[in-house]
Computed example of a mutant assay.
Amino acid sequence: MNYLRFSGILAILMIAVSSCTTLDTGYKTPIGMELTIAGGLKGVIVSMSPNRTYITYNGKTFRPLNSNLLIAEIVMEISNESDAPIPYSELSSLELMTMDQHDQFAFATWSRPFDSDERIDLKSLNDLKPKMVPTGETTKEIFYFTYPKEAKPVGLSSKRKEFINFMDETNLHYEAVNKQMERSKVLESLTLLSSYLPYPEIKTVMDINNISLEEKNFNGLTLLYIGILSHNDSVLLGALNDGADFNSPAQYSIFKILPIHAAVLSTNKTAIDTFLARGCSLTESSVDSDSPAALAVRVNNPRAVQFLIDNYGIDYRNIKLKMNWSPAISAYKFAKMNNMQEIVHILEIQESSH
């Protein structure tokens, strides 16, 4: 038996056709429902098959690695009605919205099966950037989502700005689902507003919509991260003063980061100084992530590397980067090995000055 592995970051597009099964009573039949997808693509649901314990893909049977998960298979006709080709990678914005028995909502990203026996690797949607949906073309695509058994699919979204509600108006939870969809839209709007509005105005909107400081937007970022990355000190300091968790993790590409990592990568001195005063470190790493100084090298951010040297006296001769299958190596060796010419130059100048 093969098993499905899904990741919130890694995903791949599949083309296939599937039969439709009927949803539980109290749900709309989603056939024919249309969703505006990021980038100008349109998606129309052809079939939906939720509550599946396994799927068949390329002649093999797959089950979730976690036995407490079910699979929803959604087939859509994707069309490009714009006047320019659109990258397939825009489809990464699709998420399945679910609700559990406690009326708690969650969003699930989609992927394809991972064959653990044959080591069929998942590929990032970045690999699909050269693939385009030509103007006027329609193609049929299939998406697999995994979600907990105690939850039910209640909608489909694109970047949590556009939604399809699967609930029937007669369902007792119809209004709750609609309200959550509207809250999600507000949260995405706050992502933009928080980059320049003062914190008191943002907090007012959050309180009216019952949005907490720890809620994450489509990109997995809390208000604190947005304040850091946008250099909005009012939001940064206001969120911290109101109890925002400065140890709350997020994803940066494939890397797990903390707010101080975001502060370093965005060269936000106010944020760095604030986190250092709260006991954070620029040079210490955890089990799950690089130190902020090391991550600046790993992601090839020479501006951040120079910033740390100039403002905090970081000696990169002492910074090591973890490797998957070998001992940690020096920052200089890592940069040299990966042809990071600007960082190599910066570190050579630092070496020559000692």
Rank of each mutant, 00 (worst) to 15 (best):
P130C: 06
A304N: 11
I15T: 13
D315V: 04
T61V: 15
K185P: 01
L295W: 12
L321M: 09
L172T: 14
E284V: 10
I142G: 13
A293L: 05
I208S: 04
Y225S: 05
M337E: 14
Y199G: 08
I349V: 10
S157H: 06
A294N: 07
H231M: 05
Y27M: 09
I309Q: 13
D103T: 14
S157N: 13
T204E: 15
S253C: 01
Y332L: 15
F246P: 01
L122K: 13
H102F: 10
S266Q: 05
S194V: 05
N300F: 03
V133F: 08
I120G: 03
H345Q: 10
S157K: 06
T135W: 00
R317N: 13
Y88L: 15
P200K: 05
E137A: 12
L265F: 10
L213C: 02
C280M: 03
A331W: 04
L35N: 06
Y3S: 14
S93V: 07
E73G: 04
Y174C: 11
S330W: 03
A277H: 02
L96R: 01
I343K: 09
V44F: 00
N178M: 10
D121M: 12
E175Q: 14
A263F: 05
K129M: 09
L213E: 03
M337G: 00
Y312L: 09
Q104H: 14
T29H: 05
I45E: 06
F246K: 01
D290I: 01
K123T: 11
P85N: 14
L65Q: 14
S189M: 06
M99D: 07
Y225E: 07
S111I: 02
H102K: 14
L172V: 13
T56L: 03
S352M: 09
R278L: 04
N311R: 03
T204D: 11
V133H: 13
I142M: 10
N178D: 09
G220A: 05
L65R: 15
E73A: 13
L197S: 02
Y27C: 12
F6C: 01
F218C: 06
L213A: 09
M340D: 11
S286R: 13
V297L: 03
S248D: 10
H261N: 14
T29M: 04
P50R: 09
D115S: 06
G8Q: 09
C280Q: 13
D127I: 00
Q306N: 15
S212H: 06
E182R: 10
Q104S: 12
M167L: 15
I45H: 05
T191M: 02
Y27I: 04
V75F: 01
S124F: 00
E77V: 07
H231C: 05
L128M: 11
T36W: 00
E77T: 15
C20F: 00
P259R: 06
A263G: 08
L282H: 05
T222Q: 10
G243E: 07
L69M: 15
L69T: 02
I319D: 07
S326E: 12
I86G: 07
Q350A: 03
S49E: 14
S234T: 14
M340T: 03
S212N: 07
S291N: 04
